[in-house]
Design a protein around this nucleic acid. Structure first.
Lengths: 375, 375
DNA sequence: CTGTTAGCGCGTTCAC
DNA sequence: GTGAACGCGCTAACAG
């Protein structure tokens, strides 16, 4: 009994099938390739039976060695803990399964070095194409791929200097939709809270849409706030400063969260400041999350068609893999506004201008907290 | 210029390196294998330089073809949308990266057919081992793997009739911890809410721990509630019935959610019934989620060491891959109680027995909703 | 229609 | 130390 060195698993080979069926390897290979018109009915039948009996499965590795068709797709994810990434992954995996491809997954954790290593690893397995969602900095190895016309589809973020296809959200439009919703609800002082803009096109796109929508209303104030979500308390500090700054405006304050990760930090920060929405501050977040309906009276969101983004990205990648050489293409999908309690305007229940009331309440919460620490 | 058929990518081969360096393939191969003592210093240097210059990377496919060491690990996930799965995946991916393996990911979506197909796909790539987290029903193909002594590590759920290693939570102990916490907080009528128990060992383990802890207190009442979370409104219905049933007990009602998916449904159901925690009902959930601190006064949870579970599972798998043949092993990690507002006993602020107040409030909410629909 | 032959890129003897 | 030669499982080009 032949055995695989380590595992003890018998791997049935094409040669065994051929021998048992009394035919040549070529015929079996043809059978597998679906070239039935080049096989007599008798042979076809014989081969089919033998394959079934032996439980033979062709080795994709050997297959790929020759033709280069490994039916493997590599996916590089910036942060597997980001719900957006997972949701896109879900769609991508489904598409792979549909088209008979398998996904090799690498999480880079926003680390350049690991990104490089992962790229190398995927390359060493001869993946036919790459789905890429990662930090857009220092991407020399990627550019080489671009010059080699290697099939790559970018997710969510453009990369400067690379003409890869892209699938993602129409960020400008979505941000406009979001901003106009807040304005329509009577909010006048709006902060777009995002992670660092530098190098990340999707964030920049959202800012562009935000600024554009704000510019249509000269009576309102909008500003962009950058937060570092891995730095505990930073979001709260930034928000606090914003509220203080706007405390004299006499307007209604609202926050537009740039993505799901930021939403969480904002929700936590507001909670720690004892600020509620929409009573104290309006809130609208990019990315629909499972818990969006749960917090307070529900958080309004801009939902991204994440599953579709992943699915479409794979389909686009397959088109490239199959040799299409047309110019760079961007597929931008629309976001959908889900309106919940956090962004409805509170019908003037209070006379005091909201902005000042918020600042006051916030200071009180801070004082309480300080007292608590002192005690 | 040699080109890969489709992509135009030049794949540097070991032969090219040998030619350019003016040595034989064997020498290059030895260099890669680290057999430096069998190489003259001059050759070694020459080869190293050539490899760097050409950017050569050995093909794992060709490598695996011969020795069977593909450095590939397959992971089958029951539901990629389940945060637990993703968290475990995170740890597993990290371990793979650490040990120079790459993960092939398949999502089965709790579907038997897709599970079989995925298994076949992974097999066709000669993965060296399998990480398995999926429904425990109809697993004939898996059992075959077991008989072939193919390296497999189970995540979270045991599978009857298979003696694979398992890494997961110590469910019995964790459920005891959870239940005792609720009892200690003064809750007397506790419902463990889980997805269907049949065939899923982890759920059964949690129930066992729950029942055991409840049995220590004859004055308290515990029951297990099965819910179908993909069936909208089912959770709410089941909870409603439970509350009605206990309305006469005069005790304090609490819910123990069996996992993160159930937690979400419960939170939504309670919200729809206008019931708050801990005022109306105590709540403790398996699985720490990003939003656990956010809802109401915070949801108490039993946190699983998910990252560690994934990481450990890969390590255990590698041990198996490297030939260890010892008997089946279970690695059970401990859960951690994170106590928040949802499970603290409300110091007798109300005289009316909680259980009846809950039922009353719930009926009122239902009536309001009905009126709303009628209008 | 069918079998023979020659690689794909690499690891591994086995002689030199 | 070093290199030629073979085989892994499969596909493709070339005969018959």
């Amino acid at each position: 009994m032949r055995q695989n060195t380590k595992t003890g698993t018998d791997r049935v080979t094409i040669a065994q099938v051929a021998r048992e069926a009394g035919v040549s390897k070529t015929s079996v290979s043809r059978y597998l390739g679906g070239e039935f018109d080049a096989l007599s009915v008798r042979l076809r039948d014989q081969i089919g039976k033998t394959i079934a009996r032996l439980g033979y499965q062709p080795s994709q590795m050997a297959r790929g060695l020759k033709g280069g068709r490994t039916r493997l797709i590599g996916m590089l994810v910036a942060d597997i803990l980001n719900p957006y990434s997972v949701a896109v992954l879900h769609g991508a995996e489904a598409a792979c399964q549909k088209y008979g491809y398998t996904l090799m997954l690498c999480n880079t954790g926003n680390d350049e070095e690991r990104e490089k290593q992962s790229l190398a690893a995927l390359h060493s397995y001869s993946v036919e194409g790459l789905l890429f969602n990662t930090q857009g900095r220092n991407v020399t190895p990627l550019k080489e791929l671009g010059q080699a016309a290697f099939p790559v589809v970018l997710l969510d973020r453009r990369i400067e200097g690379c003409d890869f296809d892209l699938v993602g959200l129409d960020n400008v439009k979505a941000a406009q939709l979001a901003t106009r919703h807040l304005l329509a609800q009577g909010y006048t002082d709006i902060a777009l809270v995002v992670q660092p803009l530098y190098g990340v096109s999707s964030r920049q796109g959202r800012q562009a849409g935000f600024l554009q929508a704000m510019s249509e209303r000269s009576d309102c104030h909008g500003e962009t706030l950058e937060v570092h979500i891995d730095q505990p308390g930073h979001t709260a500090t930034v928000l606090r400063e914003f509220f203080e700054r706007r405390s004299g405006s006499g307007g209604r304050v609202a926050i537009l969260a740039g993505n799901g990760m930021v939403s969480l930090q904002i929700a936590l920060a507001l909670q720690s400041m004892k600020l509620g929405f929409p009573d104290d501050v309006g809130l609208l977040c990019f990315d629909e999350l499972s818990w969006s309906p749960l917090v307070g009276s529900g958080i309004s969101t801009i939902e991204q068609p994440t599953y579709e983004i992943g699915f479409t990205a794979i389909e686009r990648l397959l088109v490239r893999i199959n040799g299409e050489r047309s110019v760079r293409m961007e597929i931008l999908l629309d976001g959908r506004l889900i309106s919940r309690g956090s962004s409805v305007s509170v019908a003037g229940s209070e006379d005091m201008a909201l902005s000042s009331r918020v600042a006051q309440k916030m200071r009180k919460a801070a004082a309480t907290a300080a007292a608590g620490i002192a005690a």
